[in-house]
Amino acid sequence: MNFSNLLISWYLENKRDLPWRNTTDPYHIWLSEIMLQQTRVAQGLPYFFAFTGSFSTVHDLAKADEEKVLKLWQGLGYYSRARNLHGTAKYISEVLNGEFPDNYKDLLKLKGVGEYTAAAIASFSFNECVPVVDGNVYRVLSRYFAIETDIASGGAKKEFTALASELIDKERPALFNQAIMEFGALQCVPKNPNCKDCPLNNSCLALAKNKVNELPVKLKKTKISNRHLNYILVVDQNNNSIINKRTQKGIWHNLYEFPVIETENKSDLKEIESKIEEMFPKASSVKLIEHEETIHKLSHQHLHINFWKATVNTVLEKGISHQELLILPVPIVLHNFIERNPY
């Protein structure tokens, strides 16, 4: 049995029953692939059901209000994925009459669809013989063949894609792609894989060389920046608050948030109180709501967040209630705070 047959045999016995594996509908496969970028299957599954329940076709998604799309996406992070998803749905619905491109080359032209996603849709929906190369595939191939190429280097993708192209089952490309991805997710896991019961252990070079835990090689470290955010819950006489839409580019674009004060370092109480009183001179009281700082970790930055309450003895012009606030799309860290702290 060769590499491809061993993988497929393992997959047919061990695969998870996932909804997007029971269809060749490119809409469902596209949704799942966009959602599962940088997201675990267990986390992404409820979102998949929510989206397919609310938007059963690409036309439904195209016609949806962006705020509803962002609200359903809330908690998945990387919100540019949701905005690209919505924009691409409009393009497919309005320009392509609801028909997805049926080949890898044309799928790549869709906004938000990269090489991996295009390969997944092309093979799973249209059985095109093109390999998928994601983190799981890097790991399986680098270990099995003891490849010490830095996967963060410029030429890594080309090298691993070429290898995967040689190995792919030409008659069953969709099955092979699903198999190698699932093998990396369940068997050849990042830490402490169960090599003893691995069907490839007799021919795995990393195991033979005792290098399983050293592969794949990834030398480039992501630089993490720290930001300090102070969110202000302003509450008026009607028990309403205010919230603003983020229109600037960057994280959380088009999501809503409370008024915020960003500082270079963690600020003391007097400094923040003074700044809040400058922003809201009619505030009768200012207090820190939660004494323990919330740390929200994103891929390239860690957000150190404090929440403050400013009570004003007036009626806010655009004040909204707690219930109205819960309907709006907000960053998940703010959503969790709002649920913890009804006002």
Rank of each mutant, 00 (worst) to 15 (best):
D150E: 10
D150C: 08
D150K: 09
I151M: 05
I151P: 06
I151A: 06
A152I: 09
S153A: 13
S153W: 10
G154L: 09
G154D: 12
G155M: 08
G155C: 06
G155P: 08
G155E: 10
A156G: 08
A156M: 04
A156R: 02
A156F: 08
K157H: 13
K157D: 07
K157G: 02
K158P: 00
K158H: 13
E159Y: 07
E159P: 04
F160H: 01
F160C: 05
F160Y: 15
T161N: 09
T161Y: 07
T161E: 11
A162C: 10
A162R: 10
A162H: 13
L163N: 11
A164P: 00
A164S: 15
S165T: 15
E166T: 11
E166A: 13
E166S: 12
L167G: 01
I168V: 14
I168F: 00
I168P: 00
I168M: 09
D169L: 10
K170R: 14
K170F: 02
K170D: 07
E171N: 14
E171S: 11
E171R: 09
R172T: 09
R172M: 12
R172W: 05
P173L: 10
P173T: 02
P173N: 03
A174S: 15
A174D: 15
A174P: 00
L175W: 01
L175V: 04
L175H: 01
F176L: 06
F176A: 00
F176V: 01
N177I: 00
N177G: 07
N177Y: 03
Q178A: 06
Q178K: 03
Q178E: 13
Q178T: 02
Q178F: 05
A179R: 02
A179E: 03
A179F: 09
I180Q: 00
I180C: 06
I180D: 04
M181I: 12
M181A: 06
E182H: 11
E182M: 01
F183V: 06
F183W: 03
F183R: 05
G184S: 11
G184T: 04
A185K: 00
L186F: 05
L186N: 10
L186H: 11
L186A: 11
Q187R: 14
Q187H: 12
Q187C: 14
C188S: 05
C188W: 03
C188I: 02
V189M: 09
P190A: 09
P190F: 07
P190K: 05
P190T: 05
K191I: 14
K191V: 15
K191G: 04
N192D: 14
N192M: 10
N192W: 03
N192C: 10
N192Y: 05
P193Y: 02
P193T: 08
N194V: 13
N194M: 12
C195G: 02
K196R: 12
K196G: 07
K196H: 10
K196D: 14
D197P: 11
D197N: 15
D197Y: 11
D197V: 07
D197S: 15
D197G: 09
C198V: 03
C198Q: 06
C198I: 06
P199N: 10
P199Y: 01
P199F: 09
L200G: 07
